[in-house]
Design a protein around this nucleic acid. Sequence first.
DNA 1: AGGAAAATGTTAATTATTTCACAATGTTAA
DNA 2: TTAACATTGTGAAATAATTAACATTTTCCT
Lengths: 206, 206
Amino acid sequence: MKNLPHKTIERLSQYRRALLLCHAKGMTYIYSHEIAKIQHITAVQVRRDIMLIGYTGTLRKGYNVKELIDLIGQIIDSKEGINVCIVGIGNLGRAITNYFSGKRTKLSIVAVFDVDKGKVGKKYYGIECFDIADLTKVIKEKKIEIAIMTVPGEDAPMISDILVKAGIIGMLNYTPKPVNVPKEVYLEEYDMITSLEKVAFFVKTH
Amino acid sequence: MKNLPHKTIERLSQYRRALLLCHAKGMTYIYSHEIAKIQHITAVQVRRDIMLIGYTGTLRKGYNVKELIDLIGQIIDSKEGINVCIVGIGNLGRAITNYFSGKRTKLSIVAVFDVDKGKVGKKYYGIECFDIADLTKVIKEKKIEIAIMTVPGEDAPMISDILVKAGIIGMLNYTPKPVNVPKEVYLEEYDMITSLEKVAFFVKTH
DNA sequence: AGGAAAATGTTAATTATTTCACAATGTTAA
DNA sequence: TTAACATTGTGAAATAATTAACATTTTCCT
């Protein structure tokens, strides 16, 4: 059961978010096709994902919303919680910080970093900004395991190396510059230009 | 040749970006394994992607950087160029606008929108901000074909509907809320929370 | 009570993507 | 001149992800 497909993990995260909204609205049961509709995927895919995590719904009634939320939590959250930092508190860094602040209890942003001395010491959405020169020290002190890079592309490789040396084990790179990390570090990269170019391409070809 | 895999399109966009940097540095030829190194993928994958677009390198010399850049452009750019708008000029909207401003000649951000009257009329990175109430009018006037949504999640479905009615044919949804569009509209969704949860999961399971 | 309808759970088939393996061939060095 | 090497191009195999098909079961209706 540890070998869940990457795509399934992504969808579970999304299901949970949708389910939390349903739960807040007072729904106790939900059908696979209702989840599917929200995520605009097929009901079979929803059922398969749920099958993979070993949950069983009730025939003709669907899935218990609360139970499913909790089970997804058991699968994708880590029990103790994980500390995260944002490196580079420009527009994108602030967007993400704001986005997360006070959302997930198991994933907490505990520090943001920037080179700009004018930003150091200030708080962003309740999170203190540290000098990027103190990356290593703060990461160790605060037991930060995941870093989100939102620095300018040209700084990404250098910052990435520092983060790896400081003991980061997961990294989310939002700069347009791919970085190299040792295989023990889990790296996810996302680049907005690529996404837009992709949309433009598929728009063109119907 | 029109049936290029989605993943190949994404990589071609990335190759081009890397190649442009190489070209700027004066490189005239590049090997598949060099491109692979930059993107941290395998050389075979690079060669296959290049094969799929019908380009042929020179044995033992590699690929001509300039030729490859141009060919990728022919494949993924649309000849006439495409106009894009950003809906919601908060932190994320500004990050993207800044990111793109003056980069791709074939993809231009020609308008940004916001509900906040204090923002309307101002310029963001050189792009004028319009009232979101004028979405339909401005989209038609400026012949905008792609919209990037960076509004709060709760507004996403409603804005999405307006965009579709206004004639948008491609949409990039950066809100955490999935939206439904008719099948003629190409939709790409990306959600940062999901990405972070995914990293957290795979970090946990080595 | 019995039949129709609506769900889930799952095997099998299909499709998409990546990787392997290797032929072909130009380049370099002895 | 020839052997060793490095590189591209690609068919075939392997892996990953999605979709189809359908058995099963519960509920509802008559």
